[in-house]
Computed example of a mutant assay.
Amino acid sequence: MDSSPDAPKPTAKEIAAKLREQIADSTYGPNAQLPAARALAKELGVQLMTVQSAYRQLRDEGLIITQQGRGSFVRDPSVPLGTEAGSSPAFAALSSELSVIHETLRQLGDRLERLERLVEHETPHSP
């Protein structure tokens, strides 16, 4: 991004897109810390809220996590969404719901297997 005084100021969407590219091409790999929002805002000549909005977009997409007082970090894709500190509250809620659904499906599978065994033993076999 061009940070010269005459260059147009990037929007939050543009900042998020550039960071998304840098995450995709491993400029920022898993667990890498992104620049501090204040420093990046100053470098780009934009308001702090603009960078914070870009970081919020990336967090809501599940690409980064933010930790109060520590900064923003690229999320490790091998860690389930919503389980790490600083992940989006929406992903944390979704992760919890998915765990409940997974356990319910496992229980239903066990029940179906028991029912199939019962039916198999009770059904007379034809010659």
Rank of each mutant, 00 (worst) to 15 (best):
M1L: 08
G45V: 01
E61A: 11
A37T: 00
K42V: 06
V119A: 12
A24D: 14
S53A: 14
R111L: 15
Q107T: 14
Y28F: 06
E97G: 13
E116F: 14
A85D: 03
S126N: 14
L48Q: 12
R70C: 01
P5G: 08
P127R: 11
R38N: 08
I23T: 05
D25C: 10
F73C: 05
V100G: 12
F73K: 01
Q57C: 14
S72T: 02
R38Q: 10
I23P: 00
I15C: 05
D6L: 10
I101Y: 12
A7E: 06
L81V: 10
F73Q: 02
R114S: 15
E21G: 11
Y55T: 03
Y55Q: 04
P124V: 09
K42Y: 12
A39W: 04
I15G: 00
E122N: 14
E103R: 14
P35M: 01
A39N: 09
G62P: 03
A16Y: 04
S78L: 07
E97V: 14
T27Q: 09
K18P: 04
L115M: 15
P35S: 08
Q68M: 00
V100R: 11
L98N: 09
M49D: 12
L98Y: 11
P10N: 07
R117P: 11
E84R: 06
R70A: 00
H125T: 15
A17P: 10
Q52M: 07
P30L: 08
L118E: 15
Y28T: 03
P35L: 01
T11P: 04
G109Y: 11
T66E: 00
L94G: 07
L63D: 02
K18I: 06
S87C: 10
L94F: 08
T104L: 11
H121K: 15
P77L: 06
R114W: 15
T83P: 00
A12G: 12
S53Y: 05
A54P: 08
L40K: 04
E122H: 10
R111T: 15
H102M: 13
D110S: 15
E84V: 09
I65T: 07
G109C: 14
L34Q: 03
E120C: 13
D25T: 10
G45H: 01
T104K: 14
L63C: 06
V51H: 02
E116G: 13
L81S: 07
G69M: 01
T50M: 08
A54R: 05
Q22T: 04
E61D: 12
I15Y: 02
S78A: 15
L98D: 09
T11C: 07
P89I: 05
R106K: 13
S99Y: 12
S88H: 05
S96A: 10
L108T: 15
Q57V: 13
S78R: 11
G45T: 02
L19Q: 01
I15E: 00
